[in-house]
Measured scan of single mutants.
Amino acid sequence: MSIQHFRVALIPFFAAFCLPVFAHPETLVKVKDAEDQLGARVGYIELDLNSGKILESFRPEERFPMMSTFKVLLCGAVLSRVDAGQEQLGRRIHYSQNDLVEYSPVTEKHLTDGMTVRELCSAAITMSDNTAANLLLTTIGGPKELTAFLHNMGDHVTRLDRWEPELNEAIPNDERDTTMPAAMATTLRKLLTGELLTLASRQQLIDWMEADKVAGPLLRSALPAGWFIADKSGAGERGSRGIIAALGPDGKPSRIVVIYTTGSQATMDERNRQIAEIGASLIKHW
Score class of each variant (00 low, 15 high):
residue 231 D to W: 01
residue 99 D to W: 06
residue 151 H to A: 13
residue 188 L to D: 02
residue 197 L to D: 04
residue 98 N to M: 13
residue 214 V to T: 10
residue 184 M to N: 01
residue 48 D to P: 01
residue 247 L to A: 06
residue 146 L to I: 11
residue 40 A to I: 05
residue 247 L to P: 04
residue 150 L to N: 05
residue 186 T to G: 15
residue 243 I to Y: 06
residue 246 A to R: 03
residue 66 M to I: 11
residue 62 E to N: 07
residue 213 K to Y: 09
residue 88 Q to S: 15
residue 174 D to K: 03
residue 205 L to F: 06
residue 24 H to W: 07
residue 140 I to K: 01
residue 66 M to F: 09
residue 61 E to S: 13
residue 110 H to K: 11
residue 80 S to M: 12
residue 260 Y to T: 05
residue 281 S to L: 10
residue 49 L to W: 13
residue 109 K to P: 08
residue 203 Q to G: 10
residue 266 A to C: 14
residue 189 R to E: 09
residue 65 P to R: 00
residue 56 E to T: 11
residue 30 K to N: 05
residue 129 D to T: 02
residue 55 L to E: 07
residue 235 A to R: 05
residue 256 I to E: 00
residue 78 V to Y: 00
residue 249 P to D: 08
residue 264 S to I: 05
residue 201 S to E: 00
residue 70 F to K: 04
residue 253 P to E: 08
residue 181 P to E: 03
residue 105 P to V: 07
residue 110 H to P: 04
residue 268 M to F: 11
residue 215 A to Y: 03
residue 190 K to M: 15
residue 101 V to E: 08
residue 262 T to H: 12
residue 173 N to C: 12
residue 176 R to N: 08
residue 194 G to W: 08
residue 187 T to Q: 06
residue 38 L to C: 05
residue 246 A to W: 06
residue 78 V to T: 08
residue 155 D to W: 00
residue 116 T to V: 06
residue 260 Y to I: 08
residue 278 I to T: 03
residue 164 E to H: 00
residue 128 S to D: 02
residue 36 D to C: 12
residue 268 M to I: 12
residue 180 M to A: 11
residue 200 A to K: 15
residue 130 N to S: 05
residue 114 G to A: 05
residue 250 D to L: 12
residue 148 A to P: 07
residue 270 E to Q: 10
residue 89 L to C: 05
residue 116 T to H: 03
residue 26 E to K: 14
residue 240 S to Q: 06
residue 75 C to N: 00
residue 266 A to W: 08
residue 42 V to A: 05
residue 103 Y to D: 05
residue 87 E to D: 13
residue 220 R to V: 04
residue 245 A to Q: 03
residue 285 H to R: 11
residue 194 G to E: 12
residue 37 Q to V: 13
residue 196 L to S: 13
residue 182 A to W: 12
residue 132 A to E: 02
residue 63 R to L: 09
residue 106 V to L: 14
residue 249 P to A: 09
residue 147 T to G: 09
residue 83 D to P: 01
residue 202 R to W: 05
residue 96 S to R: 13
residue 182 A to L: 15
residue 81 R to T: 07
residue 119 E to Y: 03
residue 172 P to M: 11
residue 46 E to Q: 13
residue 189 R to W: 13
residue 160 L to H: 07
residue 81 R to D: 05
residue 193 T to L: 12
